[in-house]
Write a protein that binds this DNA or RNA. Structure first.
Lengths: 263, 263
DNA sequence: GGCTAAATCTCGTGC
DNA sequence: GCACGAGGTTTAGCC
């Protein structure tokens, strides 16, 4: 791992090192006492304090305070990063063009600069996303309801896309909206719009089922008021089923990672 | 600024230093080659690669890859952070209790550890948020429409909260939904729900106005279909008005920052 | 603690 | 490039 540490230099010397490292798309990390100004879609100012400033190899830009998950100021991807010394301050200006936004960091004291070339080619694999759950329910519709069969995934209707679309044991059309977190009124309204659209287009009655691990009280009231249905989804159970499938497929020679990354 | 750098130590020595620093609520930053696993609301795995791991003083936990704005794995605030050496790997396990989530970082090689106590007491001041715009329009309703008067801010109605509520020059009730970014169909539906709720509760007609700097084509179509209205909001103009107010107030002895931070 | 909505949301996907 | 929706969203505000 190529990691170089710089300490005790003048602001001009730091500026040179940082400018060159950014041009080479290295990862730059700075401990400094600074102020930060932002102007763009919104605007903010932050007085003097000790922070960590990070410029990543794709020129993503982060200013982190000693507390908290999120950066106090940032730029998801900068198009230009200017580095210069002005009025006894080391200035880092990250500019983004669309939308036009500028973050300016003015450092009065730099106590550490780390320049690195990090090698990270690994694939990031997520599982149990809404996408995964949707596909699992499509292949095992009995998890939603006995006798249900799914005919379409992400079926396009006027206002958007229906997560799952099928027919129940009595031949009624079923529209399913799936949430992997607590369902709110937003989700109920989304389902209702889909149900209304499908009713209108096929000209007969349609069941709307909201499938989620939990639901807020007011959302459940709304479900009932609108003549919709709520079906609780046990995520732990689903995880268990995935585990079982995993074992089956691993016996059949498919690796865990392949299984998990399958869409 | 109290910043200490450690290099060339054994994994056990690193573990001791890191464990102690976390216990003292210092900021810990590690450059390491590692794997990362996450299990909680979702789940993920990430193979070997070189990354930056940060533990902040409130035990916020971040794993950053060399690219991109967002951390690949994280914990907004951990309740426990375990540090130990196992099977030749330095393991960092960040546990969050509600919801129950665990991020595990297994480091095969550590090339740098930085321990710091950062002092940052500055106040972060944001302006031109939806909150600010809403208050400005409430005090200057002519920016929305001549003859409009605002009677309530954040008025609670059944489905949620109406940003601005008032009466137009002809005595009709007006419900305003405000967006500081391009309005989408979501926003139109939000407004429509509020308008329907108010119509039902007061038993007479209600105007619904969506105020935003811009609107998507399909959202505008929906506005017209539902009998609502769209009023373009010039953010730059608003910013200009705030600037003017600022000058007035600065003459009256109120500082810029005080003005901007006023709610 | 639950609920509601904003955010400089970011990020992927589809047209 | 815009539009739309998910997200381990996080965060703030209110009850």
């Amino acid at each position: 791992m190529d990691v170089r540490v710089y300490q005790g230099l003048s602001l001009e010397e730091y500026a040179d090192i940082i400018r060159k490292a950014i041009a080479q798309h290295k990862v730059v990390l700075i401990y400094a006492s600074c102020t930060v100004d932002y102007e763009g879609r919104g605007a903010s100012t932050l007085g003097e304090g000790e922070r960590i400033i990070i410029v990543k190899s794709d020129w993503a830009f982060l200013v982190h305070r000693p507390n908290g998950y999120s950066p106090v100021n940032w730029q998801p991807q900068s198009s230009i990063i200017d580095v210069y010394v002005e009025g006894g301050l080391l200035v880092l200006k990250a500019v983004r063009t669309r939308p036009h936004e500028v973050v300016t960091v003015r450092m009065s004291e730099v106590s550490l600069v780390v320049i690195s070339s990090l090698s990270d080619k690994a694939e990031f694999i997520e599982y149990m996303s809404e996408h995964d759950i949707r596909d699992l329910l499509a292949s095992k519709p009995e998890l939603v309801e006995e006798g249900l069969s799914i005919t379409s995934i992400e079926k396009p209707v006027e206002p958007g896309f229906v997560d799952l679309y099928g027919i129940d044991r009595n031949g009624r059309i079923v529209v399913i909206e799936l949430k992997r977190v607590t369902a709110t009124k937003e989700a109920v309204n989304q389902l209702y719009r889909y149900v209304q659209a499908v009713r209108k287009s096929i000209g007969r009655d349609v069941r709307g089922i909201l499938v989620a691990p939990s639901i807020t009280k007011s959302a459940l009231e709304l479900v009932e008021r609108l003549g919709l249905e709520y079906k609780q989804l046990n995520l732990r159970k689903l995880r268990g089923i995935i585990e079982k499938e995993k074992q089956k497929t691993s016996k059949s020679g498919v690796s865990l990672l392949e299984f998990l990354s399958r869409r």
